[in-house]
């Protein structure tokens, strides 16, 4: 399917798709922000970040099922993910800061196995139910006659608010100053008497809470099941690499870039191919190229700027 020539308002459709790309992007940002913070401050590659996303979704589904309140579910998601994150940091991650990336990759890969199968052990093999709250269900009509799901608009709002809040936290608060100091010179802030290990735990829990929030928010329109975190994790890595590792601004720009590329690529590539192929093969070839689009984008960015768009360190 492509943009139909007879379609009454291709511009409105385009606008709707841009909103979709934006919504996908801001959710990726919630994941990517934690990853990039953790890497920036502690120098750690955390493959288990996707598991925290999953924990958030499962906690939200359980609490929503028990209480019926979506707001409580969100709180539970962030709390559960933050607690899991802090625990993991204290027990395992802490021992990995001084290690090279290889050990970190292996250890956090091991954590994925433990979290995924452990969750399946507790919750079983079938997907869990989590739905959007009544207050946010159904579409709204935007200017220009675009009908757009209210919940997705809310996601864009929440995502941008978190981005703004995170920006303020980093630039305006004491914690933010310490985080930035930690990124620049670890020995220095330890020498200044900042309790570095507590700072690390806090940063890790913060990143985890954001991942848990994303898991719960996205789980409501997708499915809550074991293994949901890994595809998002890979995308989040693509995002932070494009943006430049350690940079919150880069994560935001990268996330929106990836969201738009993925969404718009899926629509425009098939119509591009339809100019010189029959509809079925065009749908096929377009879909194939679209599924590779973000990786092509990432490779292109890295070849052009080897440390990402806003990256400083190698």
């Amino acid at each position: 399917m492509t943009l139909d020539e007879t379609s009454p308002m291709p511009l409105a459709l385009l606008a709707e798709q841009v909103l979709n790309g934006l919504q996908f992007g801001v959710m990726l940002f919630l994941m990517a922000a934690g990853l990039t913070l953790i890497f920036g401050v502690m120098g750690l590659i955390n493959l288990a970040h996707g598991s925290l996303y999953m924990i958030g979704a499962f906690a939200a589904a359980s609490v929503a099922g028990a209480t019926g309140s979506f707001l409580l579910a969100l709180v539970a998601a962030m709390t559960a993910a933050a607690v899991a994150g802090a625990l993991v940091e204290l027990v395992v991650i802490r021992r990995l800061y001084a290690r090279d990336h290889l050990d970190q990759v292996l250890a956090t890969f091991a954590l994925i196995l433990i979290f995924s199968e452990g969750t399946r052990w507790v919750f079983g093999s079938f997907p869990l139910y989590l739905d959007i709250p009544d207050m946010l269900s159904g579409p709204v009509t935007l200017p220009g006659g675009i009908e757009y799901p209210r919940y997705r608009l809310a996601l864009i709002g929440i995502g941008l608010t978190v981005a703004l809040g995170l920006g303020l936290l980093i630039t305006r608060t004491r914690l933010g100053i310490r985080i930035r100091a930690g990124e620049n010179d670890r020995e220095m802030i330890a020498a200044l008497g900042v309790d570095i290990s507590r700072l690390y735990t806090i940063v890790f829990a913060l990143g985890a809470a954001l991942a848990g929030l994303a898991g719960a928010l996205v789980g409501a329109i997708q499915s809550v099941q074991v293994g949901m975190g890994e595809p998002v994790l890979i995308l989040a890595f693509v995002v932070i690499v494009i943006g430049g590792i350690g940079s919150i601004k880069g994560a935001l720009v990268g996330a929106i870039l990836v969201g738009l590329t993925d969404t718009l690529g899926g629509i425009f590539l098939p119509s591009l191919f339809r100019l010189f192929l029959d509809p079925s093969s065009a749908a096929n070839a377009g879909a194939s190229l679209a599924s590779m689009a973000i990786y092509i984008l990432m490779a292109a960015v890295l070849i052009w700027r080897p440390t990402g768009l806003f990256g400083a360190r190698g």
Partner: peptide, 18 residues
């Protein structure tokens, strides 16, 4: 219309708009 989505895709907003 005839549409092939990505295997494992979880977000169908773009498809629904189409």
């Amino acid at each position: 219309g005839e549409l092939y989505t990505k295997l494992g895709q979880k977000d169908y907003a773009a498809e629904i708009a189409q």
